[in-house]
Nucleic acid binder design. Sequence first.
DNA 1: GATGAATGAGGATTCATTCAT
DNA 2: CATGAATGAATCCTCATTCAT
Lengths: 199, 199, 199, 199
Amino acid sequence: MAKEPKQLRLADRRQLIIEAAIPINGQRGYYGFSIKSLAVACALTVPGVLHHFGSKEAILMAVLDYRERREFEAVWQGLPFRDAVELEKYGLAEFKRLMHETVAHSSQHPEILRLGSMLRIESLYPGHPAYTFFRDRNRRALRTFTHMLNGKVEDPRIAAAAVMALMLGLEALWLGNPEMIDFVAQWDHGIEKILPSIT
Amino acid sequence: MAKEPKQLRLADRRQLIIEAAIPINGQRGYYGFSIKSLAVACALTVPGVLHHFGSKEAILMAVLDYRERREFEAVWQGLPFRDAVELEKYGLAEFKRLMHETVAHSSQHPEILRLGSMLRIESLYPGHPAYTFFRDRNRRALRTFTHMLNGKVEDPRIAAAAVMALMLGLEALWLGNPEMIDFVAQWDHGIEKILPSIT
Amino acid sequence: MAKEPKQLRLADRRQLIIEAAIPINGQRGYYGFSIKSLAVACALTVPGVLHHFGSKEAILMAVLDYRERREFEAVWQGLPFRDAVELEKYGLAEFKRLMHETVAHSSQHPEILRLGSMLRIESLYPGHPAYTFFRDRNRRALRTFTHMLNGKVEDPRIAAAAVMALMLGLEALWLGNPEMIDFVAQWDHGIEKILPSIT
Amino acid sequence: MAKEPKQLRLADRRQLIIEAAIPINGQRGYYGFSIKSLAVACALTVPGVLHHFGSKEAILMAVLDYRERREFEAVWQGLPFRDAVELEKYGLAEFKRLMHETVAHSSQHPEILRLGSMLRIESLYPGHPAYTFFRDRNRRALRTFTHMLNGKVEDPRIAAAAVMALMLGLEALWLGNPEMIDFVAQWDHGIEKILPSIT
DNA sequence: GATGAATGAGGATTCATTCAT
DNA sequence: CATGAATGAATCCTCATTCAT
């Protein structure tokens, strides 16, 4: 006879709160969301939530960290490369397969996408808790993409930016009107234009 | 000797407030910005600002309206077409010239871009004052673009979405790290891939 | 061809404002009503209203003054006595006729009644602008009634208070549920109990 | 050595706040009183007060509820009837004894009376939070009184209204000038006129 | 591990009023 | 005679946070 424990283990409770925080942060942003709304979504009290994270800022950072970890586990971990740098050894087809995976995965988790879009634009404000986080992340991403495309296209930097722009743009478009565009198909079409396969 | 009047006329003061509201709304979003911060930026008091708009929501809508009008005047008005529909009669080169103009203009006004990016994502939340505004605007834009590309590309709908995605994505990328990419050059490169000119 | 003047004469405009102020003050009280609501009811602006009275307090006092004058004109002026003191010479029947007139008149003007009820209770607060006004008015009324009943009943003071209480109470009752009681009939019934006619 | 706790229990604190709210609401009415003034009277901050009730409106309703409960406990509970309906079986003397008790009790608690008078008149405004509360309460009261006088007087409805009017009127009179009239004596005198005992 | 009490700061908005026009 | 601009004070309420329980 397993009793259902009212008090979850610390880690479990944290994860529950974080998962509830993702759509809330994605919808209202860091400035617009309130711990109260998060607490209600978790069936907890406000101090109950704060007990686990200490501050609103800490909740945000935990969410960002969780999101990063999840993305890594879902997309990158399943691939045969140890790290991004190693990718250089692989061909364009491999790169496109990886991107396709990412897009396909994203299309299943719009809330994660929305969180990223919201916090990316919100964190442009220097006072935002995720200011440096996103600034550095963007730079790193562009560098990584450039690296990955190195030797495979004429101007890797331009191509990398184009790829990233396509991804960001489709995300925004799809989030706004999901019924109007097919995220994955649109991606496949776009990437083929930007990085045409040799036939 | 003209005295500087402390009381500005309705229209002048409104415009001043709106222009001050653009960067503030772009940085913090509707939920995150405070009328106080806007009032300080205008050298007014909070009720002074509210005197002209009545509510925070009304300020936002006035900003959106102003932004729309300005964009029209700056980009579309100078072009030889009466309206979007007429564009169908023009060729791909004309379409690309129009887009280029828009991008070039946008690259001079990052604050306007930032406002758009912020409010687009923020307004996905159904309770947001600009919810319907942006939903309808997005739909209209995709329809217009599709219409403009009709007969010029294989699949106008897909192409239109790709063009919009490129624009949105480059905006987001450039806003995040303006020093890392050349907005206009990157656009010209991208559009040539998506809508290649016949040579 | 008489032109309708947009600008009313000062006195007329004042009266219009006062008449609009009666139901508003009666409904929300002095503390609860706003000059804005009054201005709207008069199709004027807030400073437009204040132009005529100078302050919220002055509006209230003007309303009270107007109400007093109107009551006098409507009820007392039509009667054959010069003033209240003279009443002593008349009999009980005359007194009851006067009261009946008052009640009949009141039943036609519930807004006036409501104003009186509201301000009477509100003005018990020492900081209220009509504090002394009503305190003195109540005392004067009780004294006058006592005087009027002098020599006609056993204990004029008690009877006077009973008469006043009946009036105040029926007013309150009728204002609350006008469809449930017949103000005038109820008065006639009550006064006959308190001050029975000799048969 | 019992330490005086800074944090009171929910129920205790609520009662303290409500009791402080009674005179404040009685003096200024719902529209005229401010949570700040109540907070000061309780040696709390404004959010401290709101913590317990959530809104100004909720404070009012709690006050009304408390007042009702207290009246019941003080007057009706001590009497030998189970409920109002049962009263029909008792005679006029019993009814008058009950009324007398009520008046005697009221005369000891003018603040409660004042609260009732203020809110009764204020709640005639349809937007008032206690609008339906008082409308229904008035109807119920008149029905109950009529019921209680059924079979004991010629016209129970008229008599009931007269009794209520006497009560309401004496309250208003006494609240305005407590030094001028003896509430209880005046009641006893009045009720004997309206409902004379058989001798 | 979690809750209720309490607070200081700040949120938007309303208000009465003054001033310039 | 009336209006629009502007303000300081006060409104209710929400916020993140701390403390005691």
